[in-house]
Amino acid sequence: MILEAVMLQVKEGMEAEYEKAFCEASKIISSMKGYISHDLQRCIEEEGKYLLLVQWESLEDHTVGFRQSNEYQEWKKQLHHFYDPFPIVEHFERVDI
């Protein structure tokens, strides 16, 4: 399992519209092969800042299966116009200690 972590900055005044759009777009990502779960968190200290965490079975399920799909084009259409600046996506794996 890998964890996709994305810090999102939504344009000022668009937060409510973004949350509604994200709820709708969630249907897209949750239908993808290798998808496990996702969680969107709103920052308390900074308005318009969100943290998106998505669990995937493998890195390729996200980077190839989702990112190179027609469904991703719809995801982009629904959500990417809300972001400024465009977010950086990072991937993490669990450390067994």
Rank of each mutant, 00 (worst) to 15 (best):
F92D: 05
V54S: 05
V89T: 14
L51T: 12
D61M: 02
K77L: 15
L40E: 11
C23S: 14
E12M: 13
S31K: 06
V6P: 00
S30I: 00
E74C: 07
I28W: 07
V54M: 06
E15Q: 14
D61I: 03
Q9N: 12
L53S: 09
Q9D: 07
I97Q: 05
S26A: 13
E45M: 09
S58T: 07
I29Y: 04
F82G: 10
L3I: 10
S31F: 09
Y35W: 11
S37P: 01
E24P: 06
S69Q: 05
L52E: 00
L40Q: 05
A25E: 02
E46M: 07
E12D: 15
A5M: 15
I36P: 03
E47L: 14
Q41M: 15
K49V: 12
F22P: 04
D61L: 01
E12L: 13
W75K: 12
E57L: 02
L79K: 14
K49R: 15
E4K: 02
L52Y: 00
E90D: 09
E12W: 07
Y35L: 07
Y50R: 02
V6K: 04
G48V: 10
K77T: 15
M1L: 03
E4F: 01
K20W: 00
E45D: 09
L53A: 10
Y83K: 01
S69F: 04
F22T: 12
K11S: 14
Q41L: 14
K33P: 10
E19V: 11
K20N: 11
W56Q: 09
L52T: 06
E12V: 14
C43G: 09
E15V: 14
V10H: 00
R94C: 13
Q55M: 02
V6S: 04
G48K: 07
D61G: 02
H91R: 03
W75Q: 09
C23M: 15
A5V: 15
Y83Q: 10
E19S: 00
I2R: 00
I29P: 03
V6Y: 04
Q68L: 12
Q73V: 14
P87M: 11
Y18Q: 03
F86G: 04
P85E: 11
F22W: 06
K76Q: 14
A25G: 07
G34M: 00
E60M: 08
H81G: 09
A5W: 03
H38Y: 11
L51D: 07
E47V: 15
E57D: 04
L51I: 14
F66I: 00
I28T: 02
R42N: 01
A5N: 09
S31M: 11
A25I: 09
E47C: 15
R42V: 13
I28A: 02
H80C: 06
E24R: 13
H80E: 14
F92A: 04
K77P: 08
S31W: 04
K27Y: 08
A5I: 12
Q68R: 11
E57T: 08
M7R: 05
L79R: 12
K27T: 09
Q73D: 15
K33N: 06
Y18P: 01
V64Y: 09
G34E: 03
E19H: 01
G65H: 00
F22G: 06
E93D: 10
E90I: 13
